[in-house]
Amino acid sequence: MTNLALRKDPYNIVITGVGGQGNVMASRVLATMLVRRGFRVTIGETFGMSQRGGSVMSHIRVSSAAVWSPQIPKGRADLLVALEPVEAIRVLADYGNPSVKSLVNMRPIYPVGVITGEADYPAPETIRKAVAALSETACFLDATAEAIRLGNPIWGNIIMIGAVARLGVLPVNRELFAAVIREGMPASRVEANLRAFAIGEAAVA
């Protein structure tokens, strides 16, 4: 936490999920924290159709020196934050490499094809196995369940950010999160966000 140097420059983060999971919000919060730390950050987002059930992916490039492309080159993610389990697999297929760290919320959001019975959704164990095999370290959370317990499934994204902080791969912490969230949000929502962040921290042992 005290070490402000990046493990790699640029450090490449993919935050993935499904429209409506708060993916864009999560990447903004994380990137804003990193800008506060003095880094140059680029977020690339594809959210044109995100509200309509499609996959949503944010690429965050963190550098101490330069602006990097809003698209991470293939096979070059350093950290994967997946708000939805099969999205983790989808992203690893394109951006995975032997040193990527993965953080996966295990609550599925079934694609329409699965609802209709045309496609199969892999079993949780299969997903864990695949993510673990394709990552240097893999951490699985039930962020949505925790968020529902907190009162709203949408806080799953902030729980995941709390978990990212605890991983120790990025110079971000609770104080920084609190500062960013207080500026960017109505006061009424701050408390719940701080609680969600703490749950995420606790979830990563």
Binding site: E87, V112, G113, A133, L134
Partner: peptide, 15 residues
């Protein structure tokens, strides 16, 4: 390993 897990993620059609 990538090949072993290829095609595991079902397509996510927009709706």
């Amino acid at each position: 390993k990538l090949r072993a897990f290829a095609g595991l993620a079902p397509r996510r059609e927009q709706t």
